[in-house]
Design a protein around this nucleic acid. Sequence first.
DNA 1: CGCTAGGTTGAATACGCTCAAAGATCGTGG
DNA 2: CCACGATCTTTGAGCGTATTCAACCTAGCG
Lengths: 253, 253
Amino acid sequence: MSRFAASSPLVRKLSAVADLSNDEVARLEDLHRHPRTLPPGSELVAEGDRHEASMIVVEGWAYRYKVLSNGRQQVINFLLPGDIVGPFASVIDVADHSVAAITSLRIATFEPASILELFATCPRIGVLYGWAVGRDEAILSEQVVRVGRRSAFERTAHLLLELLRRLQHVNAAGVQSFELPLTQDLLADALGLSTVHVNRTLRRLRDEGLLVLSRGWVRIPDIERLQQAAEFTPDYLEQDSLPEETQAELDKL
Amino acid sequence: MSRFAASSPLVRKLSAVADLSNDEVARLEDLHRHPRTLPPGSELVAEGDRHEASMIVVEGWAYRYKVLSNGRQQVINFLLPGDIVGPFASVIDVADHSVAAITSLRIATFEPASILELFATCPRIGVLYGWAVGRDEAILSEQVVRVGRRSAFERTAHLLLELLRRLQHVNAAGVQSFELPLTQDLLADALGLSTVHVNRTLRRLRDEGLLVLSRGWVRIPDIERLQQAAEFTPDYLEQDSLPEETQAELDKL
DNA sequence: CGCTAGGTTGAATACGCTCAAAGATCGTGG
DNA sequence: CCACGATCTTTGAGCGTATTCAACCTAGCG
């Protein structure tokens, strides 16, 4: 267990990449003043909103999505504890997507100024912020590949494996299992499939013993096997340290 | 025409969002030392590469992509003049995707240290860098929606409209037309379709008078009409100034 | 002139969608 | 505590969009 097991998920996530000083942890925790708790279904951001602030998910799930005509909807990605919502929101003047809470959601809003200040006064945290942004971009990229070039079967398995891994990074999942607060409707919108087909695909995954689903929980009995089936490689989610060169740059400052 | 018509496409792009001082322009141009020219097909980044530097596309097209088994391939996005390749590359230690040149490519590599320094000494540029990252993220999000929830017809039209708009922002396209250096194979990999179907879809777009294609050029005779057909809204690509609040924050520094 | 990469077209197939109806599950109020 | 309604899940049948396979065409280039 990490020495930050009790602290915020963002700190847990970042301390896997770099050892944080007590001061750095304090600065990060500082971003968590102004927390709120929102009920399931709340809209945090609506497409067309102006000048949103950045937020950090502390507990619960949310999702970013866009709505199209005739009821079509696409989930862009899921926001889990430790995720930063709109890391550069303060610079964008109109939101081009919506964000809604899936579960009851604990979330902290922070001022755009905080980030500017953080970058200016604590480059290490600036770099880690950049790392978080880069990782989210990697997750989005994988979402493009998943939806663009994988079969329904692979897609579904792949997403579940990603979610497991991401939750594990913030101590929000077990070794094989996690709580999945998604309806098949929402899953379908994330996977670019119809609800019916998601249902059939999940059934097939269960029938093949790759998945155990019960009352909002998923268990993956044989992760190795599911990874193979989904062609899942977790590299894009894993990083255990900053590159040496970057470390060196930082030490000079 | 902008007063920076002659300068680098990155400056052109950013000066649409904020008026840049001469000093700021100089700092941005500074990132363009160490330019190279690469032939079409060159790999700039290969999946698995360690610790890449960030780059700026000066001229030409490139694409980010991932390769799957049995020859499947997905283009994550296209990189056009003024685009930053891996804005936080210095913090990520292993590339999870590849990048290759489509045309002959003029590209500038800059040191990770430059960015840290820029953030520290020139917050306005730091903010604009953040804006560029945020915009790229919006483009990626739209790619997810396109591939996940749009028909082949909409998808194709939508991508072409996006490319037109993005190119216009860096003075690399006319009012209705631009040079499109993509094979139908590559287009298919970007749209998550088969080559054959891309071909049929393009034909339909031509038959309906929505597109004119000839020898590597596209013309969109009636943009309004194609936007309607594709359900394209360009908001995510457009921003003409920084939000007032952010301006105010900046002035305080 | 012939090679090669890319574009075009047809026919058969398949994967995933739509429509429809029936079963679970859960929260809520009687 | 049970009944009801609402939401979510499951299953079947038929359909349609996009795929695969295969052949042929075209343009550019050595």
